[in-house]
């Protein structure tokens, strides 16, 4: 059976502080210069290593290498992926810049796979806008170039920003799917664990016993606030505007509370033991989503005694 599924994208612009070695390397790129790091054995690494692989000491000797070099390995990509240097077919290559002892990975804009070969000479095509980032090298292209006249190094770059954007497909479990489809019909269901007999809402494999649930149980749209917090603070990723009350609500007929919003009552009047009822959105807006239940509001019943929910705290 196909269960409900939906896309999930996670995206963040990461801010990377660079430290002394990478900071000088990135500053060089901004100035259209490539700096390699010389290690104790005399080898020049491009990109530079931060620490010497033999002595473990910090690398401090940075030397300029040429903006052109030799392809030592390559492949061809016909369909570039999101975020790659070029959005038309290009070659990936390991390139040993003249004056360097190691190779760096970058894209080569060669037109076609037939133009690529091991040993080919390539040069840097600099990006028009350079900020101190590996992408200040737009890509490499066939040809050679020489380094510009020597000059003083500019201030190291402190920070680089790296956007990361990934796409996933989130698939629900059979139990979650069942729960969501019931919600779309205005029902709240749980399932009972065959071992401990507890009713889980939403239904799920019993985390205490590690077994699949069986009997489907419809539970009430009302219950008891076991405990809660008043959220007064904004934070990244938040989906509601503070202040709001998030409570643990033990639905009648369930054996584990669910978190939900409490509205329809001033925050300072929300209390442990408060009886609440689900407030559903307009039926026309229902879907296979927990958002069908807008929030919980006081039901008007007397508060539940502490003993009735103490074991759910």
């Amino acid at each position: 059976m196909e269960t409900l599924a939906a896309p999930l994208t996670i995206a963040f612009d990461y801010t990377r502080s660079l430290g002394p070695v990478l900071g000088r390397f990135m500053a060089g790129l901004r100035d259209r210069r490539v700096m390699g790091g010389r290690t104790a054995d005399g080898r020049v690494h491009v990109p530079p290593l931060e620490y010497d692989p033999v002595t473990h000491e910090p690398v401090t000797d940075l030397v300029e290498v040429a903006p052109s070099g030799t392809v030592i390995s390559w492949t061809w990509t016909g369909r570039p992926l999101e975020g790659q240097p070029l959005d038309w077919p290009f070659g990936w290559a390991l390139i040993r810049l003249d004056g360097a002892d190691t190779a760096l990975l970058h894209a080569v804009d060669a037109g076609s796979a037939e133009a690529m070969r091991t040993g080919m000479r390539v040069r840097i095509r600099w990006a028009a806008d350079r900020v101190g980032h590996i992408r200040d090298i737009e890509c490499f292209e066939p040809g050679t170039a020489t380094a510009g006249p020597p000059g003083p190094e500019s201030e190291p770059v402190t920070m680089m920003t790296t956007p990361i954007r990934l796409h996933y497909r989130h698939t629900t479990s059979v139990e979650e799917d069942r729960y969501l489809r019931a919600l779309a019909e205005g029902r709240i269901i749980g399932q009972r664990c065959p071992a401990c007999r507890k009713v889980y809402v939403p239904p799920r494999f019993c985390p205490a016993d590690g077994v699949a649930p069986d009997e489907v149980v419809e539970v009430a749209g009302r219950g008891t606030v076991t405990t809660f917090c008043v959220v007064n603070v904004p934070f990244a990723g938040q989906r509601l505007t503070p202040p709001y009350v998030v409570a643990q609500v033990l639905l009648d007929g369930a054996d584990i509370p669910v978190p939900h919003l409490i509205l329809g009552v001033p925050a300072e009047e929300v209390r442990m033991g408060l009886r609440v009822a689900a407030v559903w959105r307009d039926r026309a807006d229902w879907g296979t989503t927990p958002e069908n239940i807008s929030h919980f509001a006081p039901s008007g019943e007397p508060d539940a005694a502490y003993e009735t929910y103490a074991e759910h705290l």
Partner: peptide
């Protein structure tokens, strides 16, 4: 932690979950 924002990373909610993040 300054490379991103821990609250963001911890608040990523998959589809079909209620918007009840509290941090």
């Amino acid at each position: 932690q300054s490379e991103s924002n821990a609250m963001w990373a911890l608040s990523i909610q998959p589809p079909f979950s209620a918007p009840i993040t509290a941090g």
